[in-house]
Structure formats: structure tokens, C-alpha cells
Amino acid sequence: MAIAAGLWGTDGLLRLPLAEELPAATVVFWEHLIVAVVLLPFLPSALRALARCGPREWGAVLLIGGGASALATALFTAAFQTGDPVTPLVLQKFQPLFAMVAAFALLGERLRAGYLVFAMPALVGAWLLSFSDPLDVEVSALRTALLALGAAALWAGGTVLGRFVSASLRPRDVTALRFTIGLPVAAVIVAAQGSPFAVGWDNATGLVLLALVPGLLALSLYYVGMQATPAARATLAELAFPVTAAMISVTVLDADLTVTQWLGLVVVVCSITALGWHERSRPTKVVLDPEPVGAGR
């Protein structure tokens, strides 16, 4: 799992050069096309499994592919075009916070007041990280943060919807359907923005590596690791993601963070990690299972 999280940390190294050369929508389209082609042999069985599902599962899969895959990745890529490479990667750690809120709204899970103990420091850390001077809000920095947080929120929604369809579909089926459904949505985004579909051969290697390394390979390793790794240890292993991302951004991508931004990075990582550790290892949770009647399942 640490290897998977470390591979996610290389996302900025591969995405930033592409974001400087190509529109965000074009990068996302090719990501989906490459992975969809690789997963094509698994698509027939995934479609057969989906055909046996009801309209709620169909709707969830469509939202996963269109929102959590295509639109979220487009927002995430756009964040690299407007700001430093560290902020989007670290703000991605907000997914657990958003996932808990989405689980409350969509699955009927309940949040205790203790949730704010972890959420408030994380929000403060995000503010410190997003602005080089936390008392001087810049519009460009705010846009970068909002794009990154929007992507994290959509990915969190996809996680919750994936949990919903997991009773009917295998993870492999969901992954194949996610990228296959996301591909036409990504194409629509390209067309709507007037971006080009064609890319030069000089970007081909970067696109393939981006789709397969922090994309498909990391996701596959993560699922394998989750099957054999205690949850509390998994939380620590996931720290390889922001640490790797920050180190690559500062040493390779020439990102320059202020003291308050480094402080914000540490606060975000520690707050989200503490939340994950608490929920996976402590008997008293801040997120409770849904009531049998109110869950609507």
C-alpha cells in the first residue's frame, strides 16, 4: 500500500508538464482512453454484471464515471495550471472528510460532534497551505484551492457510491465501467471547451505513464494491499502519498513553499491521518452506521 501511495505521489511529476503543454480536458480524455483500452478485455463481464443491477446501481455507476472520474480529474488537472504543484496534491487528502459527509447524505451514516475535532484543524491547514500569506488571499491561489477541493469532493462521492455498488459489482467491474463511462464524458468536456483531441508524439510517453502509473497501477496495488493490510497500518502507509508528492514538488518541480504553507501541509496530513487512524482502530467512532430504517437501502 505504501508503494501505491508513493506512486500517487508521482502524479504531479507527470501531470504538471502535461498541464503546461495541453488543456486539462485533453489530458483527462487521453488518461481515460488509455486506461479504457487496457481494461477493454474486462468490459464485457462488467457490462453483464451491470445489466443484472437495478436503476440505483446504474445511476451510481454513471455518476462514478462521469463525475468522480472525468470531471474530477479535469478539475484536478486544471488546478495544476493555476498554482503550485503541492497544493492540489495535498488538498486531495480532504477526500476522507468529504466522503464522510457524502456517506451521511447518500447512505444515511451519522456524524458525531467529534468529527469537527478532526475537520476544523484540517480546514485551517488547508487555508495555510493554499496561500503563501494566509492573511492576503490571492484570487489565483483561491481558484487553485477550489479546483483541488472540488476534485476531492467528487472523488469522495465516487468512493461512497462505489461502496454502494460494491454489493452488486466487483472492484474490477467498477474500475472498467468507471473509465469506460468516463471516456465519453471526457470527450464532451473537450468538445465543450473547444480543446483539441490530438496531442503530439512528444506528449505520448507522459500521457501513458500518467494513466498507467499513478492511475491504473497504483489503484490496482492499493486494492490488493487493502485485502491483506490491517486498516490502522494502511493509514500510515498512505502517508507515503503526500510526503512523496511534497518532496518531488520541491526538489524536482521547483515549488517554493513558505513557512506557513509547510505548517499547513503538516496540519492537513496529521489531521486526516489521525481521523483515519481513529475510525479504523478505535471502538468509539465519529461516523456511525446508518439506522436500519433511515438508510434507504
Rank of each mutant, 00 (worst) to 15 (best):
T77P: 04
P121V: 06
L97M: 15
P85A: 00
A105C: 14
V137Y: 03
L107N: 09
L91I: 08
R112C: 03
G108K: 04
V137K: 03
A79C: 03
R143L: 14
S140E: 14
D84L: 11
P88F: 04
T144N: 12
T82D: 07
A126F: 11
R112A: 09
F118P: 05
Q92E: 07
L97V: 14
V101F: 08
G83F: 11
L154W: 05
R143M: 12
F94C: 09
A148V: 06
V117H: 05
A103H: 05
G125Q: 05
G158F: 11
G150V: 01
D136T: 13
A122W: 11
G114R: 12
L107E: 10
R112N: 01
A152P: 06
V86W: 03
F118C: 05
F76G: 07
L89W: 00
L97I: 14
A151K: 04
A126G: 15
R110T: 05
G150Q: 04
A122M: 13
T82V: 15
F76Y: 15
L154E: 09
L129E: 02
V139H: 12
V160I: 03
E138S: 13
Q81F: 10
L89E: 13
A79S: 14
P121S: 08
A105S: 10
Y115L: 04
Q92W: 02
A151R: 02
G158R: 03
A141L: 10
V117W: 10
F94V: 09
L97E: 05
L106G: 09
G157I: 13
A152E: 00
R112P: 02
L129G: 08
A119Q: 01
Y115N: 06
V101A: 14
S132V: 04
T77G: 09
E109G: 01
L147S: 03
A79I: 01
L107D: 12
K93D: 01
A113N: 04
E138K: 11
L149I: 03
G125P: 09
A148Q: 04
T144E: 15
S132D: 08
F98Y: 14
T82K: 06
L89T: 08
A105F: 13
A153T: 10
A78H: 01
F118H: 11
L146V: 14
A151F: 01
F131N: 13
S132Y: 08
L116T: 08
L128P: 00
E138T: 04
R143T: 12
D84T: 12
P96F: 08
F98S: 12
P88C: 06
M120K: 00
D136Q: 12
A153C: 13
F76H: 09
A99T: 06
T77A: 15
Q81I: 05
Q92S: 05
F104M: 14
T144K: 09
A156R: 11
A119V: 05
L149A: 01
A119E: 00
L149H: 01
F80K: 00
E138V: 09
L135Q: 11
F98R: 10
S132G: 15
Q95Y: 01
R112H: 08
L142I: 03
F131Y: 15
D136P: 00
T144C: 11
R110Q: 06
A151W: 02
T82P: 00
L142D: 00
L146W: 14
L149Q: 00
A151G: 10
P96M: 13
D84Y: 04
L128A: 00
R110S: 07
A153V: 02
L111S: 02
L147T: 03
L89S: 15
F131T: 12
Y115S: 06
Q81A: 15
P121W: 10
V117F: 11
A156S: 12
P121T: 07
V90F: 02
